[in-house]
Simulated assay, not measured.
Amino acid sequence: MRIFVTGASGWIGSAVVPELIDAGHQVVGLARSDASAAALTAAGAEVVRGTVDDLDVLRDAAAASDGVIHLAFKHDIAFSGDFQGAAEADRRAVDALGTALVGTDRPFVIASGVAGLAPGRVSTEQDTATANGSPITIRAATAQAVLDLARQGVRSSVVRLSATCHGDGDNGFMATLVATARAKGVSGYVGDGANRWPAVHRLDAAHLFRLAVEKAPAGSVLH
């Protein structure tokens, strides 16, 4: 398959690209900088220059593909205080990609998350985020819009990533906990252990994205 990947040089994308290529797929990656383009070329992918704001570029690349994996998100503005702006830009990008795939029965896989699901119990694929108008529920609405494309001839699916995607080179708290355990033989947690945080290794996440684009039935939610 010829698969268009947005966010292809990012933390998850840089694991998804070799996962796809090793499985025999042809990858076309969206790159917004020279450094990203060079990384994708080195990984064996083709490059389309642009950003998630270039809606015509997204539509054309999706139309020329056999499937799409959408991983890009404006983390830079999201983490600097404008999560809503990032979520709204993501919705516009998703709508552009989805429009190009309507009626094709081609796969369209997006990254979402488990944030906003009911706390205090195990969340399942049947759970949805509570609609409270927060930026998190804007992303949940975007995910639902992708699932709804299943009724318009798109083999759409949503991968809900754990709150932490860790791996080699990660500077987050999962890496800190693992490093502590390796150095000391044990690692701590806060309180009585009831505060639990889901995590997934980025290579396992990449494997799931490949399986989704290859096999997931239309309208699937995958944790």
Rank of each mutant, 00 (worst) to 15 (best):
G193W: 05
I21Y: 04
V57Y: 01
F83V: 13
K215P: 09
A63E: 10
H75I: 14
V221N: 08
L211I: 12
G133P: 07
E88Q: 13
V159D: 06
D66F: 03
G219C: 08
F108S: 08
G50W: 00
H166R: 00
C165I: 13
N132T: 12
V122A: 13
T104V: 05
M174R: 07
V109N: 05
A15E: 09
D22T: 14
A183D: 15
A140P: 09
V52P: 01
R139K: 14
S134N: 06
R160S: 09
A150G: 15
D90E: 15
V28G: 01
D204R: 06
D82A: 07
D148A: 14
D22K: 14
D95R: 14
V186L: 13
V52T: 14
T137R: 01
D90A: 14
A93P: 09
S156R: 06
V213L: 08
E125L: 03
G188E: 12
S220K: 06
D66V: 07
A115G: 11
H166C: 01
D60Q: 15
Q126S: 14
P217N: 05
D170E: 02
L20F: 09
D53S: 15
L55K: 10
A181I: 09
N171Q: 13
H207L: 14
R182H: 11
A35G: 05
V154C: 06
Q152F: 13
F83R: 12
S162T: 12
K184A: 14
L58N: 02
S220I: 09
H201R: 04
V221D: 04
A15C: 11
I110L: 06
H166A: 15
A143P: 09
A199P: 01
V5I: 02
G50Q: 03
F79W: 13
F73N: 09
S123L: 01
A175W: 03
T51D: 12
T128W: 11
A63S: 14
L30I: 02
L161H: 06
D95Y: 07
G85F: 04
S9P: 02
G113W: 02
A15N: 11
G193N: 06
P107W: 00
D90K: 10
N195R: 11
A100Q: 08
A100F: 01
G172E: 10
H166V: 11
R106H: 05
L211C: 12
R59D: 07
E214T: 11
P107M: 10
V102Q: 15
T142I: 09
T128V: 13
F108D: 06
G120N: 03
D53W: 06
L71G: 10
I21T: 09
D82V: 00
G7V: 04
G24L: 02
G167S: 05
A183F: 07
I77S: 03
G219D: 07
L20D: 05
L147R: 00
T128K: 05
A218Y: 07
G153D: 04
A179P: 02
S187E: 03
V213G: 01
A183N: 10
F4A: 11
A100I: 00
D192Y: 03
Q26F: 02
R210T: 05
V68H: 01
L101D: 07
A175N: 12
L149Q: 07
A181K: 11
G10E: 06
I136R: 12
V186T: 14
T137S: 15
K74R: 15
P119L: 03
G103L: 10
A150N: 01
L161F: 12
A206L: 02
I136V: 15
Q26E: 15
F79H: 08
D53K: 13
R155F: 01
A8F: 02
I69G: 03
D82Y: 00
